[in-house]
Nucleic acid binder design. Structure first.
Lengths: 127, 127
DNA sequence: AATCTGTTCTAATGACATTATAACAAAATA
DNA sequence: TATTTTGTTATAATGTCATTAGAACAGATT
C-alpha cells in the first residue's frame, strides 16, 4: 500500500485515505476486483485506528467506488465505461466551482486553468 | 449582498461565505476597491453570528483576496494581472487533484473533465 | 477448530464551528 | 465635538466531528 498519512494535516485522516485510495484506483495501481487490505492491517500499517480506516472504506462505498462484503473484505468496483451519472457530475461541478472562482481571483485565465487541469489529468492517467 | 447560506449544509457557514464572496469577486459583481458590508450588518442580514462573518473575512484576507482595515472595514483587493504566484498554483493543484482522481474513477475521460471545467469558467466569467 | 473479518457498542479526548455577551478603542459620521 | 459604527478581543457555552481505545459478536476464511 503506497499510502502516506500526515497526522498534522488539517485534512482529516479518513479523507486523506479516501483521496489517496481514489488516486490509486484512478492511476490503475489498484484495478477493479482487487481486494483492499483489511481495515485492521491497513490501520496497523499506517499507525492509525481501525475505525478511521473503516470510516474511509465506507465513504468510498457510499461513492460507489468500492464494495464492502460484510465480514469478508472490500474490493474495487468496476469503473463505468458509460461514464458518470448526473448526480456524480453535479457533485464534481459543485466541488470544483469554488476552486475555479478562487483561481480566477488569483489572476488565472482560462488557458492557465485548463493547463493545470490537463497536467493533473496526464499525471494521473500516465504518470 | 447576493449571498445564500444553507445552515444545514455540511459545509461550514464561514466556508460558504468565503466561497460565495470569492465567486462574487470572480464574476465581477464585486470589484477591486469595493467595500464589503460590515461584519455586523452582513451577519444580521444572513441571520448568523458576527464572529462567523468575521472568520470568513479573515480567511479571505489570509488568501490575499480582501484587505481588512482595522476599525474601519474591508475592501476587495486588486486581481493581480501578473497572474497567481507559485504558492497559489500549488494550493489549487493540491485541492483539484483529488477531484480529478474522483472524476476519473467515475468514468470521465479527459474531454469530459475539460468540458466541465470550461463550462464553469464560462459561467463565472460571462454568465 | 482456529483465525480473520467487518460490525457494533461504549467511552473518552481534543479540535472545530457557532452562538452569545460584553467591553474596548479607533474610525466615521452627524 | 458628540454619537455612532467598526473591527478587536475575551470569555463561555453548546454541539458536532475526528480520533483513539477496548471489547464483544458473528459470519467468512483458512
Amino acid at each position: 500500500m503506497f499510502i502516506q498519512i500526515e497526522p498534522t494535516s488539517e485534512i482529516p485522516i479518513y479523507t486523506q485515505l479516501v483521496n489517496q485510495l481514489m488516486e490509486l484506483i484512478a492511476t490503475g495501481t489498484m484495478k477493479p476486483s482487487d481486494s483492499l487490505p483489511s481495515v485492521r492491517s491497513l490501520a496497523s500499517d499506517l499507525g492509525v485506528n481501525m475505525h478511521t480506516v473503516n470510516k474511509a472504506y465506507h465513504e468510498l462505498e457510499r461513492k460507489n467506488i468500492i464494495q464492502i462484503i460484510p465480514k469478508s473484505g472490500a474490493v474495487v468496483n468496476i469503473i463505468p465505461s458509460t461514464g458518470p451519472n448526473e448526480l456524480q457530475i453535479e457533485y464534481i461541478k459543485q466541488m470544483v466551482k469554488p476552486l475555479i472562482a478562487e483561481s480566477i481571483v488569483y489572476g488565472m485565465d482560462k488557458d492557465q486553468i485548463s493547463s493545470i487541469v490537463n497536467s493533473i489529468i496526464t499525471e494521473i492517467s500516465e504518470g
